[in-house]
Nucleic acid binder design. Sequence first.
DNA 1: CATAACTGTTACTATAATAGTTTCAGAATG
DNA 2: CATTCTGAAACTATTATAGTAACAGTTATG
Lengths: 139, 139
Amino acid sequence: MAVNTQFSIAVHIMAGLACQRGRNITSATLAASVNTSPSFVRRILAKLSRAGLVETATGKAGACWLAKDAKDISLLDLYAAVDAPKAFSIHNYTEQKACPVSCHIKTALQKALGKTQKAMEASLAGISLAQIVSDVKQR
Amino acid sequence: MAVNTQFSIAVHIMAGLACQRGRNITSATLAASVNTSPSFVRRILAKLSRAGLVETATGKAGACWLAKDAKDISLLDLYAAVDAPKAFSIHNYTEQKACPVSCHIKTALQKALGKTQKAMEASLAGISLAQIVSDVKQR
DNA sequence: CATAACTGTTACTATAATAGTTTCAGAATG
DNA sequence: CATTCTGAAACTATTATAGTAACAGTTATG
């Protein structure tokens, strides 16, 4: 577990908020469900808040709730919000002038992997938070 | 640079082999192009060899070469060969019995992310090593 | 108005994946 | 039989991430 799991935690959090809509939920409540510390939850929550996906209240009756309807939030929104790393990363190295592959592979890779990244994001865009919630409730 | 770059290095290596087809290439030559150690190249090369994508010769005139035509090798083949990590990983946590989200989000996520992973792999399957090589040569 | 309870943020530690190196046994060529 | 390669194992260093702790700022409430 050293890969980035913030995305899936974000989905978990948002599904929780969607299920409990209306009630005031604290980071501690969410942390219990995700099984991590409230602080970590808040860190992710802050990103979601900056992205306009959740709203929060500070102060004593502090809480958080969805900023929009679950139907109008896609997994791509969450992916972008938590700023998860790209699916692929290109190795960096100093170009060997004598070698055409070494000089040009990077551009070729960027082109190819950009396409793949787009395909992935399109798939994420097609899944709404509402669908996830419905899946969760069906069980 | 702590994310997995083996995939892009594998593409680099394979593009090199495709460009120099026929010549006998050693891990040291490839390492110079990628700008890493021959040993690291061999580690990746070994995976590609196990996957049937390259063939190697041991002994003094040791070398390696493509096992198939570049047209018949897709980026998905390379992706599978180096056993790159999945695009998403799901956080693991102990289920909170009282919380339906905590209990069922994992299955819902697996379903959704499985779809996304498939989309990504389909995109990779559509790009051949030959295309990469052609991109590299065009510059 | 004082207290309690929350958020937002920063700073820190621990862990785990990965890159990269070193080393050596085994194999084939000349 | 010496040279030079692969294959593989063992090791270190680096870095992203998870996770924790601490605290200032904010607000509801008695």
